[in-house]
């Protein structure tokens, strides 16, 4: 463990919110790969443009689990537009900061979220999220 995690990170790591999958999700995001050691899946339910539920599954370190948990918390109840403004920095800040080497975990969480919204938009409008391209997580 390169640096101590904040209390908030540990709290979300110990008791992650919204773990699991959703039945018939309106959007599913899948990012990361086993080589870099982090894989995130995010599921969202959307009603009248509002994210009514979100769940995740993550293979990864403490920061990966905590950022997934926080990202799902931050987008629940938000409109698609509001959810799109949740950046990796916002996730990291909400967790009381991350050690520098773990910032990529928050980028992954943002990508997972956008990937789920991209999937939702493709299903509903036929077009994905404009300009969305997940970061290269192979390092």
């Amino acid at each position: 463990m390169p640096e101590a995690y904040s209390n908030k990170v540990m709290e979300h790591f110990k008791n992650p919110r919204n773990v699991g999958e959703l039945e018939n999700p309106d959007g599913t995001g899948h990012v990361g790969n086993p080589v870099c050691g982090d894989i995130m899946e995010m599921y969202i339910k959307v009603k009248d443009n509002v994210i009514t539920d979100a769940k995740f599954k993550t293979f990864g370190c403490g920061a990966a689990i905590a950022t997934s948990s926080m990202a799902t918390e931050l987008i629940k109840g938000k409109t698609i537009e509001e959810a799109l403004s949740v950046t990796n920095k916002a996730v990291a800040e909400a967790l009381g900061g991350l050690p520098p080497v773990k910032m990529h975990c928050s980028v992954l969480a943002e990508d997972a979220l956008k990937s789920a919204i991209d999937d939702y938009l493709k299903k509903t409008t036929g077009k994905g999220l404009p300009g969305f391209k997940p970061h290269d997580h192979t390092h």
Binding site: M1, P2, Y5, F13, G37, F59, G60, C61, A64, H139
Partner: peptide
Amino acid sequence: YVEGESMLLNLDLEGIAASTGSACSSGSL
């Protein structure tokens, strides 16, 4: 199916010290 650091952190919370060769523990990815 699970990652080393998250196992270590959980073990540490239970008062058990162990070690891992996983990427996430070193910062080297």
